[in-house]
Design a protein around this nucleic acid. Structure first.
Lengths: 342, 342
DNA sequence: GCATGGGCGTAGACCGTTCTACATAGCACC
DNA sequence: GGTGCTATGTAGAACGGTCTACGCCCATGC
């Protein structure tokens, strides 16, 4: 079966024979290692080009590097993750590294399986985006291969790097903005998670929200609603919040994606935004700027996060041991969905 | 450097020693190959569990399978591709296969590099989603590993399978719907591509659009505008179309993602949808259903496409040689953005 | 003239699996 | 008791790279 496929691929041995040198010499050229004369290099490169030779990553992986980094994404639907990937790609552009992505669908079990799969592959390093796993699991992973986390607060960690937005501050900016525009009854629509840990961005935003409400003397108004990932659950939660007798004056959503659903439900219920209810998102994804959404949001530059993570990872692959924890400062981008009421 | 990381991983030899059997025996158990007694299997499995052994994919790749399939996505931003990935994941759920994704950012050069990287990895098979490459390149790829294409029309191909929507029909449905709702000046906003080929979904939709316009005696109104991927280019094109003296009565966009931008521009220009201009998308992604978009679109069930592709790929990996070409029939989902004018 | 050392290239072990070819045991049958 | 067959387990050669250890050559210094 599939026997027609064994095309007798050209290997390093073929190249060596063609160039009339040893296998080791070809390997040296490939890795541009020390001890190769210009003449030998030229000869080998000519043969490589003529034969169209490509080293097999699998064989390479057994002893050396694979020049591949693995990215674990929780959720491909959230457009914010596209921004992160853009950043990763631009950091990798001029390097020898390529990225391969695993999608965990926000399920812890899949996440763990994927990390295992990637370490078995193996990859030279891993970028985990918004992972759900607990510190112990991250540690195990980091011991096996260089690791950088995005969107996971573990500022004391020494075995891996982290790249984060200051999520507490971001939430505070939102609350302050809403207060400044005349709202005080501000609810937070967060994400429901089985075993929430403080490292999660949603937890951090909840903390920031609580703190800011307290600072503004609004502790009595604190209202955190948590809904699952799915559109159905999100809409149901939004509907409950907007229909209830004491509808909040503003809903702050943990991510833009959710805020768009809230806007939709509000419109369906005949409510006007921002008159009847203000809506604010988080991440400042490209959807916020569309006129039909006109959504106030918090910018944390996914591009920068991805870029930094990739940079740090490469440093770590190259041997850095000391941990680095990069934090970007969020910035509120006010749009129509939170304009002061007239 | 990173020497602390060499944790002396347990290998198949460790397991063999622990269970008191040969390496080959362990390998047999792992692959559940023929010629293993229940007693031996039990013994080996106990050792595997006790040692927490995991076979390394890289070593495995050198002779056998890797149980990994590669998916090449053109663009992670387009939410339609999320639907496809959902389908792929559900097909793979109960199998031993895992998927790893490469993102080409709609660039032909990256696409080719990624396909090479994946074949070198190697993967057991490849799913290429909306690839730009020409038939010759696909053929080369298919000769190296089992391949299924999604969103690439090559119905005669024998070396690989394809999974497609009937894009011509989809475009026809749109034109007919718009005609039925009283429009005749219907423009098509398509995608600009350097070297367009007929196999692309955009080309197919253009063909369907032209044909349907002709059938309805509207050939004089045929107007195909092509814009690049970026939001900036899309908006610029939309602005030109909507501002011009002879603004069309309807704009049919090649994908939802673009239609959302058009809705935004229309609103910015103070035009009302669908009164001043009707807008229709393609793919029926989840954004269409949001009240602020309320976008008419064509459903081609990305979930089904992904599911079928994964199924076909596994069949092919298992030895099927004869080509299969799966085609789904699109369905128009009418919403507010194309309601008849009152 | 001879030891020294740096530059260059090579031989061959090694990485962790798979898989073919073969050895052995047990059993049925004559 | 010998023969043939099946069922089970094993030895060892792949797979295609990397990388260490070493040898050769030539220039240099004394």
């Amino acid at each position: 079966m599939a026997s027609s496929r064994t095309t007798d691929r050209t290997t390093i041995r073929t190249v060596a024979a063609d160039a009339g040198v040893s296998v080791a010499a070809v390997s040296k050229v490939l890795r541009n290692a020390y001890g190769v004369s210009d003449e030998l290099r030229a000869r080998v490169e000519t043969s490589i080009a003529r034969l169209g030779y490509r080293p097999r990553a699998a064989a390479r992986a057994m002893r050396g590097q694979t020049d591949t980094i693995g990215v674990l994404l929780a959720d491909i639907r959230n457009p914010f993750f596209s921004d992160i990937m853009d950043g990763v790609h631009s950091a990798l552009e001029r390097t020898k590294y390529q990225s391969l992505v695993g999608i965990s669908q926000s399920a812890l079990s899949i996440e763990l399986a994927l990390v295992d799969a990637m370490t078995d592959r193996p990859m030279d390093g891993l970028i985990l985006v918004a992972p759900r796993m607990v510190a112990a699991d991250v540690t195990v992973t980091a011991l096996r291969s260089p690791t950088v986390l995005i969107g996971h607060h573990e500022p004391q960690a020494t075995l891996f790097d982290t790249v984060n937005d200051n999520d507490r501050l971001g939430a505070q900016l939102v609350v302050e903005h809403l207060v400044a525009t005349g709202r005080s009854d501000i609810a937070f629509l967060s994400l429901e998670i089985d075993d929430p840990i403080n490292a999660l961005v949603t937890s951090q935003r909840e903390i920031g929200y609580r703190a800011a409400m307290a600072e503004n003397g609004l502790s009595a108004h604190v209202d955190i609603v948590r809904a699952g990932q799915s559109s159905r659950e999100t809409q149901a939660a939004a509907r409950r919040m907007l229909k209830s007798g004491e509808r909040p004056e503003a809903i702050f959503c943990w991510t833009d994606f959710v805020a768009l659903e809230v806007l939709s439900v509000a419109r369906e219920l005949g409510l006007s935004v921002p008159e009847d209810v203000a809506v604010v998102g988080y991440d400042n994804t490209s959807y916020c700027d569309l006129a039909q959404n006109d959504l106030t949001s918090v910018d944390q530059s996914g591009h920068t996060l991805g870029l930094q993570a990739a940079r740090l990872l490469i440093e770590r692959i190259k041997g850095r041991i000391s941990p680095e924890h990069f934090v970007v400062t969020p910035r509120l981008v006010a749009r129509g969905s939170s304009r002061p009421r007239t």
